[in-house]
Design a protein around this nucleic acid. Sequence first.
RNA 1: GGUGAGAUGCCUGAGUGGCCGAAAGGAACGGUUUGCUAAACCGUCGUACGGGUUAAACUGUACCGAGGGUUCGAAUCCCUCUCUCACCGCCA
Length: 423
Amino acid sequence: MLQVNYIRQNRENVLERLGVKNFKETDLVDEVISLDDERKRLQLEFDNNQARVNSASKEIGMLMKQGNKDGAEALKAEVASAKATIEPLKEQMTSVEKQLTDILLLLPNLPAAIVPKGKTPEENEVVREGGEIPTLYENAVPHWELTTKYKLVDFELGTKITGSGFPVYTGKGAKLQRSLVQFFLDFNTAAGYHEYLPPFMVNEESAYGTGQLPDKEGQMYHATADNFYLIPTAEVPVTNVYRDTILKEDDLPVKMTAYSPCFRREAGSYGKDVRGLNRLHQFEKVEIIQIVHPDKSYEVLDNMVKHVESLLQSLELPYRILRLCGGDMGFTSALTYDFEVYSAAQKRWLEVSSVSNFENFQTNRLKCRFKDANGKTQLTHSLNGSSLALPRIVASLLENNQQEDGIHLPASLHNYFGSSIIN
RNA sequence: GGUGAGAUGCCUGAGUGGCCGAAAGGAACGGUUUGCUAAACCGUCGUACGGGUUAAACUGUACCGAGGGUUCGAAUCCCUCUCUCACCGCCA
């Protein structure tokens, strides 16, 4: 959530930045300002009246002690009239505050200066590429045939048990998942990230805290009997660890990592995009999250990008890093780098990680702050990234490394998987 | 799921209608003194939103789990909810 005072002081800039994100309802910005004016006016009037009530009440107490009943009664009448004024003011204040918050929730984060203009994924900028795109042998097939051939994933069984998009991993397929999770977590903790195993369901407050609500209401599974949401990413429970906290400056940066399954309804997806492991309703992911000093967040973003990059390098997968354009960025992000790996049999790039700086957009909502050197309380910045999402990593590992005698895994996984080959 | 007890500031914990934004102790921070891996003493030690100021100072309001109610006045009384603890039941 953007800060009202920031909007007030930087109106032109806010409008210009929202334009980069192709945000159309720019009237809302001025509406925020006028609602805030109204809020201030109401508060001042309310406070003044309330102050009168408070002091009169004190006086009544004293008069009663002195036995001055008539004086007390007279003051009571005065309080009653002040309260009559206050009552409607209170209602107006509540209503104006709610309108203000509702609108603020609709405004996306402002993109950083470096974010390219653009509307579609084609306008994302390729920042870097790495690894080598393999030349596959002549009988190479897409991963959904390999998973069947080696009995790694049973899609039909998942459909029977739950529904489409809920695959069942079996045998070596299950073990590969477990190995990757373990490898990723070890890689992250070695870099100083503290490991969490969070709840896989969150309450409404947490979903608001990180900005999934109200923006992505329909994308989350909702357990209505208890009003819990199945998490779409570990970002939600883990970032909320620091909801409503004031950290010491020395506590920063906070580095966290977590494995979790992720649940996404993916309403509106179809076609080749959803084939095999490309797009699922439930998948495994390891996430990294940092809460940092506002002056450091872009430096940290670069570090996180390098961290994820070296993880991909250790998997020996061909990858590229994209800087997302305004139109392709998420609601809460100020700058996002997407990582894609090349799926050689499908001959397409698959997104496997998204690393973002949210600046204080999440922390404003979360009230995650710190005391700076001058003793002033200010908002921290939050960042997160996948490191990594499993299904598409598995897809490209299978496809890119397939040979006549089986799938040859990268050296980094041999110990975790207990073998160098799937056959 | 049942019964009972509880929820106060960073922590412990007092406060049962006005003198309470809240005692006391501890932790933390700053200082003095002494000196050695510490003690003593002094001071500071909530958040949000307003007014005010170049910035402070100063000042108003709200907040003692959340929401409502009673009252001139609520941390304190009443109601609802949430959570915690204890015991019972069930159970991986």
